[in-house]
Design a protein around this nucleic acid. Structure first.
Lengths: 223, 223
DNA sequence: TCCCACTGAGAATATGATTCTCTCTATTGG
DNA sequence: CCAATAGAGAGAATCATATTCTCAGTGGGA
């Protein structure tokens, strides 16, 4: 009995291969089930968010909608924050993919960057109704102040895109000297996203995508 | 008796002047007392915020610190939100004054704008400890998404400053054609403040005030 | 078949904001 | 100085939510 109990604990690295595989198999089965549940929570949250247009739904709502239980929710997520973070990272990543695809349509480096800037701006404005608007407004800003590191991670895909495009510009000698692609990328990306945030707020003078592009590309001084 | 009781009610506009003044006097006395209490709440909140470096203090803490009561707090404020809003508007307004003063030191329009941009950037970065840092990080961003109209009001003084300086540039023909002072002002102000927000977040590459100025003034393109 | 990690259901806890009740006091009109 | 009243203090009560805990299954795998 002692032997039977000890073996898996004391010699994990000498497990027979078949046992490892068996464990692996059931482990993966469990994993699949878990992933399905997580999916259900994520879907439910996404749906509710689209309906209410805010991230202020309650965990209970998500649980009910997904026909699961609070118990289970906290088994899979550290809390509501983790749920939102998951949705956010996902949305950011998909958004980056779409923008990259949009950029690929253009042949000229400057046009590529331009299309990305303008589409990012449009999709970030808070006055449009989209299923993930609340993530980009509500949540993103909260995350920025409360968990900057997580924000950086979530932003990484988009930043990578901007960096790539900016690098092309630098390679083509279209980037103003004194600017490194990396810095210009971060600066531009943030300028676009943040200005979109307050764009709907300008009353009768909402910013346009063109203006933003013009500003980022040329600044405001005469020459 | 009927006359005596009726007079103030039925003919308020014909009140004898002495009575109006008397009422005024006691009214103002009450007002002064109220203002004092409000001040105490405000001071207490400010102090606590400076200590904890966040706006996540509880109303109870403010009440205790100010040696007043919950009852009284809600008599004077609609809620915690109003308290923070009051502090925020105040801070923004003072900040605008200081920046305006700093600008006045310079003789050249471009230098004036530059000093404002750079000092605003420095004072908005979240990695410095200042008694109102939490207001500009925590609260400002929250306000932006939850009460954009109030945000616009609070921003007004600063925006006015930027608009004035930008107008000077336009008058001196230093503003790139195609840009109106108003738009350039809003764009620049937001770019500076928001990029400051995420500046500490860049890991080993925090943005500098110079870079921000360079970017706003010239954009990233070659010429 | 037996075992156990995982679930569902929902009660219990924790935290904060906001409201309410009751009592007390200071201001003010007379 | 007295009485009426608004405003204030103390703190209990209420609400909304997130998070944790209890208990009783239950389905998959050895």
């Amino acid at each position: 009995m002692a032997q039977k109990a000890d073996q898996p604990v004391s010699a994990p690295s000498e497990e027979p291969a078949w046992k490892q595989r068996a464990v692996e198999r059931s482990t993966q089965a469990a994993k699949r089930r878990a992933e399905q549940r997580v999916e259900r929570f994520l879907d439910a949250a996404q749906t509710i968010m689209a309906e209410k247009g805010t991230t202020d739904f309650t965990v209970q709502e998500v649980v009910d909608r997904s026909r699961q239980s609070l118990r289970s929710f906290y088994q899979h997520f550290d809390g509501k924050h983790e749920l939102l973070l998951a949705l956010f990272e996902d949305a950011m990543s998909k958004s980056a993919d779409e923008l990259r695809a949009a950029a690929a349509e253009k042949s000229n480096p400057l046009d590529r960057l331009r299309v990305v800037v303008e589409e990012l701006f449009e999709s970030s404005r808070p006055d449009l109704t989209g299923s993930q608007r609340p993530l980009f407004t509500d949540f993103a800003l909260r995350l920025l102040v409360s968990h900057p590191a997580e924000m950086r991670v979530a932003n990484a895909p988009l930043l990578a895109l901007f960096t790539d495009l900016m690098q092309e510009l630098e390679d083509a000698n279209l980037l103003r000297s004194g600017f490194k692609a990396r810095r210009a990328a971060a600066l531009t990306m943030q300028t676009v996203m943040f200005n979109a945030q307050s764009s709907g707020q300008e009353g009768a003078h909402p910013l346009t995508a063109d203006e933003i592009w013009d500003f980022c590309a040329n600044g405001f001084t005469l020459s």
